[in-house]
Design a protein around this nucleic acid. Structure first.
Length: 847
RNA sequence: GCGAAAGUGGCGGAACUGGCAGACGCGCCAGACUUAGGAUCUGGUACCCGAAAGGGUAUGGGGGUUCGAGUCCCUCCUUUCGCACCA
């Protein structure tokens, strides 16, 4: 009977579907496990790179199910987004149509892989039943001031013709297409994620199940820095002050000038009053026109000019010049800095270039540096000098006292600054959630009443790809009555960033058909947080920080009782082909369906899990896949060779067999040790490749065992008279082999579920794996009876002792010294030291 | 520039708390069974010397701690990733 996986795939997939094997409901009497893979953008075809993630999740989900957990393992579609809309501009096919077609195809691919999803909970974010709750939530956030509208300078991608959030700008370009981002002044909707900056930052220490790398990225992104704001009056301008942010208030006696960003709000006022307003404005314009990416990255030279105005250092009361500099960022802190050239490298370079004074006010070890001899700024903390009453204090102490003084005198206060900005969510595109807001001349901004939700996307007839906000060109959509005064009003025509959709879909899975709330809090209380979440690292800050933000919003709305939605996070590596990431444009995608037709779902699943640990990038090889197929066929032949022998009734467990011979005991030991290793590898180490190799070892052992038995190994079965097998084996052999095979099949089930189900059935078991329990091991049986102990002399292995596992340290020492090979090294010399290490291992120092 | 992770046979990788480096797989070599083998089974496969027994050298380079280092420490090199004038 040959191994024909394609038939098994079909048979068991049908069986799982018709028996609703993976559908679940909340059950407080059982422990729950929520296993989730990042949902998919329905691009049309999943390649093996995408599919790796789903297989990882499926192995975890299936294992947990066998271990008695009530497992929620859902899937859905991140179905809004630009590619579908751009395709519509090209092809004229409506995004709704193409998206649904893509979803149907990809769903089929996942089903053919045998991923154990609870498909009845499937959702797509482009369904009004889903995005209605985006709108509902938006309004709740608006009511609480967490969603607000403001005019500001925003990132604009000219290619996608839409605004981008800061998180979506990578190296100065659009995260999706790489086009350099431009700045535009626009009225936009923002989510006040900065209100949770401290919470999001501080809680990272509680995320012990996350990779440290991702946490570091999030901490850097939030970018909290402690410091102070200090206000500098302007000489002769009583009405205005320059407020600066500094993390080094201890160096304020060394502040010899003040720098403003070209975007600083005071700049235009100063220009007007300056001696030469025309040239002033020209220089500011020149700075602002500089390439933003280059300006921020420090690639261009530091430039600046003197405004002619002077600020009064509130600590020294000295007047210092105010300059405008191209490297000062308008959007960070106050957009103005006090420049301390002696103790800040950037200020140092600027002072040297423009001959501005440098004054040393902090010294690390007693003797102050000479300003005229410095080659770089002295940024280290130390003891203050030339700082009036603060001289002699350490930097830390000085900071505390200076902040207290500033506060007392009303010239400043201690604060923290963040690099995290509020999340701009308006998108000038069609294929997204309409923002449920109405603008009325009389009543201003008015939310759409809850009972009118959802605000549905109108069907667009044409996609031109030109101009802003396609919805603005649909009069029936734009023109509405004001919900308050019933007067004429117009709708918001921007749509939401699709990252809004993906920030809470994992809650909706707990209760996906609810039509009165986003979800029932009780359902979420049972299922959430997600116990195991896996996806690509590319979401380390985008999706994962937005989701943590949404969890806090739901928490503050009283809908959930936790703050962190994902307990354990696994960031899986990409699958490469020919050394590069698979992509349609590179023409190097490996289509899972082709592989399925050749080798079946289980070989593909097994290969993907075996090739490397899940976090690592892997290079796809066809021969590796064939190897996995061969392994499964090898297991299949093993079962074929033993099925009639061990299938009979009335055969007890090996525990009841008293007289196992050495080979049988060794096989039992291997069986139990394999269960131990596979269980730990899957459940604790999440290192699936070594779990697979442990199973391969067991299979090799079973082949070797078969070699020694009456009927011979599986490969020779063809030459045996099949009618006679079975009667020739010892009862003990049958017990031990059956135990080994039944364990193997169950361990294999999460990786190769179709094959395992079939083999389980062949062995005469009725129940499908949804109901089968994970094998357990006996630690005593798993331990070897006899062990080989290496003996080292001066660090080199010179002999090996075969001893009982119970041998004591003294026994080992004695046996080592008595060993002939060892004696040839010790005779005539002194044994200076003997170490018996756990392991065990004996190490002798001989001189 | 700063920070993090990593560097192991021809290849993917293993080695859990410092204890036999190279598990398992791919590839390759040989044998068996065969009309045949690109099926299957068995054996071999880090490198160097040696007919063999055996010996020596090996985890990016150099140094150190230790009875013992792929693993810990220092230093340098390379690769990948993240951050990059954030005051």
């Amino acid at each position: 009977m040959d191994y024909r996986p394609q038939e098994l795939d079909r048979k068991w997939q049908q069986h799982w579907a018709s028996s609703r094997a993976f559908e679940v409901s909340a059950d407080s009497s059982r422990p729950k496990f929520y296993c989730l893979e990042m949902f998919a953008y329905p691009s049309g075809h999943a390649h093996v790179g995408h599919v790796r993630n789903y297989i990882i999740g499926d192995v975890v989900a299936r294992t947990k199910r066998m271990r008695g957990y009530n497992v929620l393992h859902p899937f859905g579609w991140d179905a809004f987004g630009l590619p579908a809309e751009n395709a519509a501009i090209q092809s004229g096919i409506h995004p709704d149509v193409s998206t649904r077609g893509n979803i149907a195809h990809m769903k089929g691919q996942l089903q053919r892989l045998g991923i154990s999803y609870a498909w009845e909970r499937e959702l797509a974010t482009c369904d009004p039943e889903y995005y209605k709750w985006n709108q509902w939530l938006f309004i709740r956030m608006f009511e609480r001031g967490l969603a607000y509208r403001r005019r500001s300078s925003v990132n604009w991608c000219p290619s996608c013709s839409t605004v981008l959030a800061n998180e979506q700008v990578v190296d100065g370009g659009c995260w999706r297409c790489g086009t350099p981002v431009e700045m535009r002044d626009l009225e936009q909707w923002f989510f006040r994620i900065t209100a949770f900056a401290d919470d999001l930052l501080d809680a990272t220490v509680s995320l012990t199940g996350w990779p440290e790398k991702v946490l570091t990225m999030q901490r850097n992104w939030i970018g909290r820095s402690e410091g102070a704001r200090v206000r500098f009056p302007i000489e002769g301008e009583a009405a205005v002050q320059v407020e600066v942010f500094t993390t080094r208030i201890d160096t304020i006696y060394g502040a010899t000038f003040v720098l403003l960003a070209p975007e600083h709000p005071l700049v235009s006022g100063l220009a007007a009053k300056s001696k030469d307003p025309v040239s002033f404005r020209q220089q500011v314009q020149a700075f602002r026109a500089q390439d933003r990416a280059a300006r921020i990255s420090g690639e261009i030279e530091k430039q600046g000019f003197d405004t002619g105005f002077r600020a009064i250092n509130p600590f020294t009361h000295e007047p210092v010049p105010i300059w405008i500099a191209n490297f000062v960022l308008g959007e960070y802190g106050t957009g103005a800095v006090m420049a301390v050239p002696a103790h800040d490298q950037r200020d140092f370079e600027f002072a040297r270039k423009f001959n501005l004074p440098i004054r040393v006010v902090v010294t690390p070890e007693g003797r102050p540096a000479r300003a005229d001899r410095m080659t770089e700024a002295a940024e280290a903390y130390g003891t203050l000098v030339n700082s009036g009453e603060y001289s002699g204090l350490g930097s830390n102490e000085a900071q505390k006292r200076m902040i207290a003084t500033a506060k007392q005198r009303g010239i400043g206060e201690g604060t923290a600054q963040y690099r995290l900005k509020d999340w701009g969510i308006s998108r000038q595109r069609y294929w997204g959630t309409p923002i449920p807001m109405i603008y009325c001349e009389k009543d201003g901004i008015v939310p759409v009443p809850d009972e009118q939700l959802p605000v549905e996307l109108p069907k667009l007839a044409r996609f031109s790809g030109r101009g802003d906000s396609p919805l603005a060109q649909v009069p029936e959509f734009v023109n509405v009555r004001c919900p308050k005064c019933a007067g004429p009003a117009r709708r918001e025509t921007d749509t939401m960033d699709t990252f809004v959709d993906s920030s809470w879909y994992f809650y909706r899975f707990a209760d996906p058909r609810n039509n009165t709330m986003p979800f029932d809090p009780a359902a979420v209380k049972y299922w959430l947080p997600v116990d195991f979440y896996s996806g690509g690292v590319e979401h380390a800050i985008l999706h994962l920080i937005y989701s943590r933000f949404f969890a806090r919003v739901f928490r503050d709305l009283g809908l959930v009782d936790h703050s962190e939605p994902f307990t354990q996070l696994l960031t899986q590596g990409m699958v490469l082909k020919d050394g590069v990431v698979m992509s349609k444009s590179k023409g190097n995608v490996v289509d899972p369906d082709t592989m399925l037709q050749k080798f079946g779902a289980d070989a593909l699943r097994l290969y993907v899990m075996f090739v490397a640990p899940p976090e690592k990038e892997v290079e796809w090889t066809d021969t590796g896949l064939e190897g996995s197929f061969r392994f499964l066929a090898r297991v299949w032949r093993l079962l074929d060779r033993w099925r009639e022998t061990i299938g009979g009734e009335g055969i007890g467990s090996p525990d009841t067999c008293e007289s196992l011979n050495a080979a049988e005991r060794a096989l039992r030991r291997k069986t139990h040790d394999t269960i131990r290793r596979v269980t730990i590898d899957i459940e604790q180490r999440r290192q699936f490749n070594t779990a697979v190799s442990a199973m391969m070892e067991l299979v090799n052992e079973l082949y070797a065992f078969g070699e020694r038995t009456a009927t011979g190994p599986p490969g020779r079965r063809a030459e045996q008279d099949a009618g006679h097998v079975g009667e020739m084996e010892r009862r003990e052999t049958i017990c031990v082999v059956r135990e080994a095979l039944e364990a193997l099949i169950r361990l294999l089930a999460p990786f190769a579920p179709h094959t395992a189900e079939e083999m389980w059935e062949i062995l005469g078991h009725g129940a499908s794996f949804a109901a089968v329990t994970w094998p357990t091991y006996d630690a005593v049986v798993a331990r070897a009876e006899e062990i080989v102990v290496p003996v080292q002399i001066n660090g080199r292995v010179r002999s090996r002792l075969t001893v009982s596992a119970e041998a004591s340290e003294q026994d080992l020492e004695r046996l080592a010294l008595a060993d002939p090979a060892i004696r040839s090294y010790t005779t005539g010399k002194t044994v200076k030291k003997i170490v018996v290490a756990k392991g065990p291992l004996v190490s002798l120092v001989v001189r």
